[in-house]
Structures are given as C-alpha cells and as structure tokens.
Amino acid sequence: MAPMIEIQNLTKRFGSFTAVDDVTFHVERGEVLGFLGPNGAGKSTTMKMLTGFLHPSSGTATVCGHDILADPIAVKKVIGYLPEGAPLYPDMTPRAFLEFIAEVRGFTGGEGARRVDEVIAKVNIASVAHQRIDTLSKGYKRRVGLAQAILHDPQVLVLDEPTDGLDPNQKHEVRNLIRAMAKEKVIVLSTHILEEVEAVCSRTIIIARGKVVIDCTPTELAARSRYHNAVTVSVAADKLTAVRHGLSLLDGVQTIEDLPSHDGAARFVLIPKAKRSIAVEVGQKVRDARWEVDELRVERGHLDEVFRELTQPTARN
C-alpha cells in the first residue's frame, strides 16, 4: 500500500528566502510523526503546504493518494488540521463553530449534530460549549481547535504545536487524545517540546533552515546524545572524592562531569567510551567497594542536546 503522506522535493521560497528546501519524506498509517525544529525552521510552512493552504514553489505532496496541487479539495477532505495558535472565530460559541465546521465538512441534520456532540465530549468542552470563544481560556480554545480538526474523523491529522501554551494537565490530556487516535490514523505534529516527542511520537524528523537534518525514532535520536548510556551517580558529599576517583578508573568510563549538588548529596555523570553500556560495570564496582550510593541512574540521552547539535550550524563541523 502506498504511504498515506508522501512529500516529494517540497520547496517554498518567500522572495529570496527559502523557508522549506527540498524536503522529501513519507509517513505510513499508524505513525505519529513528531516534526521538530527551531522557530522559523520551516515546520509550519511545510504543514501549510501539506494542508493546501500555501502553494509550494516546487515539488509536491500526496495525501491518501490525492495530489495537493491537482486535487486540493480532496486533500482537505481527508485531512484534519489544527493551525498554529488554533485560530477560531472569536464571536461564535464552540457549539455554533463546530456546527459550522460539520456543515462545511458535509455533515448535516442528525449526523452533524451527532458528530458535534461526540467531539465536544471527546475534547471535554461541554461546560463552555455555549460561551463565546473569545471569552475562553487558551486551553479551551486549543481544545476547540482540536475538536474542529477531528470532527470528520480524518485519516490524516496535522497538528501544529497542539500543546503550546497549555498547562501540564491539559498537555497530558491532549497527548492521551493523540495516542488514542494514533492507531488508525496518520498524525503529524510539530512541537518544540522535546519530552512530547518521547511521550507520543513513533518517529521524529528534525528540520533546520528548511532542510531535514534527521529522520529516526525518538530512541535513536536519544542514542545520538553523548549522554546515551551515561550513568548518573549521587553520593553523600563526604564520600565524593573516593567514589569519584574509584569510578573514574573503570575501563568503560571516558570522562566524568560534575552536576550541581543538592540536599548534601554530590552528583556526577560518568560518560562512557563510545556510548557503550557501563551500568553493569559501575554497579559491580559500587557493590565490591561497598560504597553507599544514593542513586545510580542510566541516562537514555538528552534530546535537547541532540536537538541543539543538529540544528545549530556552529555546533556541527
């Protein structure tokens, strides 16, 4: 079966500025693609082209087999889209707004009302359904935007920063919602919250200065970190010197980085040689030497560090 989203050499230029530069990738059903990149990297522009809002300068994309240039209306029918900032008509109530969306999406009468009720329950906005949208909090507005995007049960969901500006509870809710829909849909979401990628995405694409710099799973992304398989050790301050010295002699340890201490406990990180697993080695040593260690934790890798390294031009080369 052909991929649900197929982006081919997609390019968008604004004057002399190239916002999206020859981007190519596909997304299959069941994938949740996290689209990462610094602000202005071209995430939103790519999404705007994919959803048919902007015309690409060159290249094209197909969504469920429909070409965005040849048949934009068909594309718009199969996509649910939450634009950045969740724009809504401020003088409408969520219910009236969703009824309007239902009607434009071709659901009239009972079917339309049923779908509106369904999404209102799904995103949990029943309590404000009859309040004007401009009086709603940011969290509610975002949920109305999400409701609008999923009302027609689209096969492809494109979400531009779906959790931006939400509090931790709301973020959690939205992520649960995304995870629940992930199985039968294709979801592309952009974010610059890296924990979100680990929480919901099955795949990440990092884009910087309009180009795709990496395309892999969140786990693989974390593995690129120099902290991958590093071990964080926390000991009482008076034992620090002994433990630190003892562990630094281990075979697999490349270097040691000290962390800020708190509550009288000193902490440091053992960076392994060539990212190999040193947990066993370290544990063995600690037991043999009978050190009282408060914490021994294996790091999966720091995504923000990888992100910086991949997206900052100076950090590379």
């Binding site: 705007k48 959803t51 048919g52 809002f53 634009p83 900032g85 809504l88």
Partner: peptide
C-alpha cells in the same frame, strides 16, 4: 489578523 483565513482555506472550500 485572527489567522482564521488558514482555517477557512484548509476546509474543503474553494
């Protein structure tokens, strides 16, 4: 100004 133009033109309308 509201950005709703993006919403409008990503709905299936011409």
């Amino acid at each position: 100004r509201q950005g709703t133009i993006e919403l409008l033109f990503t709905l299936p309308v011409t």
